[in-house]
Design a protein around this nucleic acid. Sequence first.
DNA 1: CGTTGTGAACGTCTTCACAGCA
DNA 2: TGCTGTGAAGACGTTCACAACG
Lengths: 262, 262
Amino acid sequence: MATGRTHRPATRSRGIPEATVARLPLYLRALTALSERSVPTVSSEELAAAAGVNSAKLRKDFSYLGSYGTRGVGYDVEYLVYQISRELGLTQDWPVVIVGIGNLGAALANYGGFASRGFRVAALIDADPSMTGKPVAGIPVQHTDDLETIIEENGVSIGVIATPAGAAQQVCDRLVAAGVTSILNFAPTVLSVPDGVDVRKVDLSIELQILAFHEQRKAGEETTGDGTVDTAPPAAPPAATVRRTDGTDSGPDGDVPAVMPA
Amino acid sequence: MATGRTHRPATRSRGIPEATVARLPLYLRALTALSERSVPTVSSEELAAAAGVNSAKLRKDFSYLGSYGTRGVGYDVEYLVYQISRELGLTQDWPVVIVGIGNLGAALANYGGFASRGFRVAALIDADPSMTGKPVAGIPVQHTDDLETIIEENGVSIGVIATPAGAAQQVCDRLVAAGVTSILNFAPTVLSVPDGVDVRKVDLSIELQILAFHEQRKAGEETTGDGTVDTAPPAAPPAATVRRTDGTDSGPDGDVPAVMPA
DNA sequence: CGTTGTGAACGTCTTCACAGCA
DNA sequence: TGCTGTGAAGACGTTCACAACG
């Protein structure tokens, strides 16, 4: 979604579409589950259902990786697991540091999905001295002062930021200066990073807001009212003639405030 | 990303593009920050920088909402805050339940970004009886048995699932049956829901895997080696002639295993 | 026969570039 | 003059539908 503008310059060929890359982990999870149940092969239809996508999309995605799969039969589960893992770089070991061991940082440290996918929590780092040495998920928390040393000694290239928003940019700068080139950011801030560094962002409240948007639409369509609207009245518009782009109507629940002083 | 297929059938007009909706919370955050600093107006260029997008995109996004903004000047901060909030449905109060109060659930309950955006944690629910009554973020945890009652009495339409993967679908079914129509899922599973229910998914390990993909690419380009490759050798292909889709080359680090028994 | 792999059609999102307006 | 609002162009992503093939 918000990567630090670094990928391929979108030249032809060689280079899996970003949208496909984002789905590979999904396929991998579904395949791993099948593998654990010792299912030998799977059709695009079945696997697509398990991954929650449609089968045409899945086949196209796989076609970017190469022609694995047997016509009339399907895909060999074990083989695909390996190919996708390799494509994603999960056949390597990725040491990761988590900075900011609050509730969220602790949750991340305890999260099983990391270890099972080639990620290894190399260190937990927090600025609070009273945390230092305290084990979280079996790993003793280290102090921010040692951040650079930790990164370098462990050859860490992926950092996770779970600090409060105010500290995030500073932590980010130090991570990058110490050699980290990929950052997963949970703090609700836009991080600025130099070229060559990737940032991905997870924001809990953004996801909720998107849900609220759709939820509101539902309420506006089914029953035409009942919405528990409250909250203070609107601010006055600046000094412009405000017009809805197209004349069609007056919004979900009546365009509320009635604009136009004009 | 993975919504329960319910939005607009993509009819003409009226209906903000999904991509735009996903950015509105970003703009809202940037605007809120400006508002707190009492900045009266902002240009598309400045706001875009603060939100981490480019200005053309921002202007197009805003054009879907209407013509707020003054040529030669910019946008009125307070006014835009209100308009975006209204569009997102944040002028209403959204009661939310969080199911699964482990590390992650607790982190969510404590997360400030909810309350500040019109979301109110109406209840925390966990299946572990020893949790029942224990306060987390000042709210006593309730037992799963009472899930239906809680949903109905509080008029909850948005649920957050932070349970282990195994319990997620069952919890989801109960939430939906009790009237929840939007779900934010943190469990690493594909949820199936009836039409009319929206699901959004946040998966920590998927984000890391996407980073690993790009990280691997970087390593393969700069220095041509050094990658700490290990992990067991590949499984044999099924019985198919495996060919790379285009003949161009042999993958990032040498196409590793050499396929083809043929 | 059943299922993959993929060109071609279609839809959505982004970017460009500039006319229109305060 | 400076910045918004937006058509038009282009990149990207998805879906269709079917030929290729085990």
